[in-house]
C-alpha cells in the first residue's frame, strides 16, 4: 500500500536554485540576505540575473544586505488554494522594498503580525519598517521572511 506524499500536501513548494542563484539560497541557509551588486555601476538587482538589469555588465559581487526595509504592499490570504494553505490561512504576503536601494523589491511573508481570521491586519501599514528573519521550510531550505520592527 502506498503512503500519501505528506510533504507535497503539507508544505508550499521549496525552491530549487536555478543556475546562477545557488549563492542566494545558500546564503539564506546561512541566515544572510545577499543580492548581486554590479561591479560596473554598483546597483543591486533581484531576482538573480546573469547581467546587470541597469547597465548590462555581467561582472558582479554578492553583497550582504542589512535585511531592513519597508512594506510597499501586502495581501492577507484567507482563501486557501493550495493544500498546505489550509492550515496556514490567514497568512500575509508582502512586497518589501529594501533600504539599500529605491525600487529593490522582493516578495516574502510577513510573520508574527496580528491577523484576524477575517483577514483584518490592523498593525500592517504602508512603509512600515520590517527586518528579515530566516524561517526553515520543511525541506530544510531557509527562506528570508520579514517581521515588523
Amino acid at each position: 500500500m502506498s503512503t500519501p506524499d505528506v510533504k507535497s500536501v503539507l508544505a508550499f513548494p521549496y525552491p530549487v536554485p536555478e543556475v546562477g542563484a545557488e549563492d542566494y539560497w545558500q546564503a539564506a541557509n546561512d541566515e544572510r540576505l545577499v543580492m548581486q551588486k554590479c561591479d560596473a555601476c554598483a546597483k543591486l538587482r533581484f531576482t538573480p540575473a546573469p547581467i546587470c538589469t541597469h547597465c548590462g555588465d555581467d561582472q558582479f559581487t554578492w553583497a550582504e544586505l542589512s535585511g531592513k526595509g519597508k512594506i510597499i504592499t501586502w495581501t492577507v490570504i484567507t482563501h486557501p488554494i493550495h493544500p498546505a494553505a489550509v492550515a496556514k490561512v490567514p497568512y500575509v504576503v508582502v512586497v518589501v522594498e529594501l533600504d539599500e536601494q529605491p525600487g529593490l523589491r522582493m516578495v516574502s511573508n510577513l510573520i508574527d503580525a496580528e491577523v484576524g481570521e477575517d483577514g483584518s491586519a490592523p498593525t500592517i501599514t504602508f512603509y512600515a519598517a520590517v527586518s528579515v528573519a530566516f524561517e526553515p521550510h520543511p525541506s530544510g531550505q531557509k527562506l528570508p521572511m520579514f517581521r515588523l520592527v
Binding site: 507535497s8 500536501v9 513548494p13 521549496y14 525552491p15 490570504i77 488554494i81 504576503v93 516578495v107 531550505q141
Partner: peptide
C-alpha cells in the same frame, strides 16, 4: 485559479510560491 501541487519550484516561481503566492 488553483495552485499546482508540485513539491518544488525553480526560476521566477521560487521567489513567490514558497511564500504561498500562487495565483
Amino acid at each position: 485559479g488553483q495552485a499546482p501541487t508540485d513539491e518544488s519550484v525553480t526560476g521566477v516561481k521560487s521567489y513567490m510560491s514558497p511564500y504561498g503566492l500562487f495565483s
